[in-house]
Computed example of a mutant assay.
Amino acid sequence: MTGVNAETWEKVCELGDIPDNGAIGVEVGGVPVAVVRTGDEVFALHDVCSHAEVKLSEGEVYDHTLECWLHGSCFDLRTGKPTGPPATKPVNVYRVKIDGDDVYVSLSKE
């Protein structure tokens, strides 16, 4: 399907590049993206903390949470919403698809 709303996917890494219960930072069209793996799931969020503007991909991952390394703000991997202070604003979440070992991210709105 083509048109204005066509979704664009970009390969960002291979599954093995993402540590278990960890994250890596990538760029998609110039946008910083944190690709996060927890269990069998992979998520993608904007890789800039909404509180202190540092890379979230350098933080800790547990449950479905990514904790910023600088001040401890926590974000839900599924929604991007903060689950712990000091952050009060959510970060964007992006769609992810896995094809074999390849991980793709789309910045398109659902």
Rank of each mutant, 00 (worst) to 15 (best):
M1Y: 12
M1I: 15
T2W: 07
T2K: 10
G3T: 06
N5V: 12
A6Y: 09
E7Q: 13
E7N: 04
W9L: 00
E10Y: 06
E10N: 07
E10W: 06
K11I: 07
K11W: 00
V12T: 02
V12H: 00
C13Q: 03
E14P: 00
L15P: 02
G16I: 01
G16Y: 08
G16M: 01
G16E: 13
D17Q: 06
D17K: 07
D17P: 07
I18G: 05
D20W: 04
D20N: 15
N21H: 10
N21F: 04
G22V: 10
G22T: 05
A23E: 02
A23V: 06
A23Y: 03
I24D: 08
I24E: 09
I24Q: 11
E27K: 14
V28E: 01
G29I: 14
G29N: 15
V31D: 05
V33I: 14
V33N: 00
A34D: 07
A34F: 02
R37A: 00
R37M: 03
T38G: 08
G39I: 03
D40L: 10
D40F: 05
D40Y: 03
D40W: 05
D40Q: 11
D40I: 04
E41N: 13
E41A: 15
F43V: 02
F43W: 08
A44S: 08
A44P: 05
A44D: 02
L45W: 03
L45H: 01
L45I: 09
H46F: 15
D47A: 01
V48G: 02
V48S: 10
V48P: 00
C49Q: 07
S50T: 15
S50D: 13
S50L: 13
H51I: 12
A52S: 15
E53Y: 07
V54I: 10
K55G: 06
L56V: 08
S57N: 10
S57V: 11
S57Y: 07
E58D: 14
E58P: 02
G59Q: 03
G59T: 10
G59H: 08
E60N: 11
V61I: 14
Y62I: 05
D63C: 12
H64D: 14
H64W: 11
T65R: 13
G72K: 01
G72Q: 05
S73N: 10
S73F: 05
C74A: 13
C74F: 00
C74D: 09
F75I: 06
D76Q: 13
D76N: 15
L77N: 03
L77W: 02
R78K: 15
T79F: 12
G80H: 10
K81D: 14
P82T: 06
P82F: 03
P82C: 06
P82M: 00
T83Y: 01
T83G: 07
G84C: 02
P85L: 01
P85D: 02
P85T: 01
A87Y: 08
K89Y: 11
P90L: 10
V93N: 06
V93C: 13
V93L: 03
V93H: 09
Y94K: 03
R95I: 02
V96F: 01
K97P: 12
I98V: 15
D99V: 15
D99F: 12
D99G: 07
G100P: 14
D102M: 08
D102T: 05
V105P: 01
V105L: 06
V105F: 04
V105K: 07
S106D: 03
L107W: 07
K109W: 08
K109A: 14
E110C: 10
